[in-house]
Design a protein around this nucleic acid. Structure first.
Lengths: 169, 169
DNA sequence: GCATTATGTCAACATGACTGACGTAATTGT
DNA sequence: ACAATTACGTCAGTCATGTTGACATAATGC
């Protein structure tokens, strides 16, 4: 068990950036782990979770948009999206304006699962915010937004709904 | 291309927890992506990065401690650790107090690579902190610490070096 | 009509995770 | 001293999720 002997050797007073490198790892590890048990009930993995989440939050999303968000290849996406459609969690309708597009929507079943998973992760975040203090939410949001690659920030802002967007096409 | 049409449908005014769910995904996605290009030069993946990082920051760490930190199986760790040892990035010496243990240390070469990777990630974090404001570092650190599973916080605190630890065995 | 676009799909492969089983050496407890 | 436990390694098989490259189809736009 005892590992305290090597703590001070290289990290006598870690600058904030070094601490944050490791805290991001631990926080994300536990954050995504929250969903695992629920996902396993349906034979899904974390990739399914990500797809379901973004489709739930952005109904009418196209496959191309999902690829830009997840930054994976269409083959990787294809597999998990097929699983979700076949098992009735996501519904893909041909676009009306452009019939090549598949506009993705969650079904009632999909919405239920997405909500259950969101609730788990939101609970962890809310507990953490309560421990952090009153400005925690605003500053944590600002920090994480600033961590995103600048070129992706417009897309992220739109998806997350933090800009003052009022309407669309 | 145009996706604005579906932004306001489900996220009219997202509560902070929902925004943070997505921001954690985007921030972590870009954060870990920083290292990929460098790792590819050595034929390493993200698993190698995590091992190298924690061994560099905690010299003398044992295999069991590394398993507790990464929360993976010893078989998974075994592969990447073997790669790192064979290629001269990590050195494993038998423990003196308990000779069954393998005390892990980075070599000079390992320290160099670990530093290069840390510098990349620290740069993104420092840029983000500069955009966030003066209390950014403290609050972001507190928030991410609070996101960690309570049972793991003592271990995390020791590894990250944020507690007032003064000495060890 | 023809180039481009949006999407799907097949094949092959890499990485990194998993379980289960077994082996060995060293330590600990009685 | 001997047995149980511990720390670690390893073999074998599997799974989830990512990759590249190539090709097919249908719809769009000029």
């Amino acid at each position: 068990m005892a590992a305290a002997r090597h703590a001070p050797v290289t990290a006598p007073a870690a600058p904030p950036a070094l601490a944050l490198i490791e805290l991001l790892f631990f926080a994300y590890r536990d954050f995504v782990g929250d969903a695992d048990e629920v996902l396993q009930r349906y034979g899904f993995g974390r990739a399914h979770h990500r797809v379901l989440h973004f489709v739930n939050r952005n109904p009418g999303m196209t496959v191309a948009e999902l690829l830009a968000v997840l930054k994976i290849t269409k083959q990787s996406l294809g597999r998990v999206l097929r699983d979700l459609v076949e098992q009735g969690f996501i519904d893909a309708r041909a676009g009306t304006r452009d019939r090549r597009q598949r506009l993705l929507h969650v079904t009632e079943r999909g919405r239920g699962l997405a909500r259950e998973l969101m609730a788990l992760q939101a609970a962890r975040i809310e507990r953490a915010l309560a421990e952090t203090g009153p400005e925690g939410a605003e500053i944590a949001t600002a920090f994480l937004r600033a961590m995103v690659e600048p070129g992706d920030r417009p897309l992220v802002a739109r998806l997350v709904g933090l800009d003052g967007v009022a309407a669309g096409g």
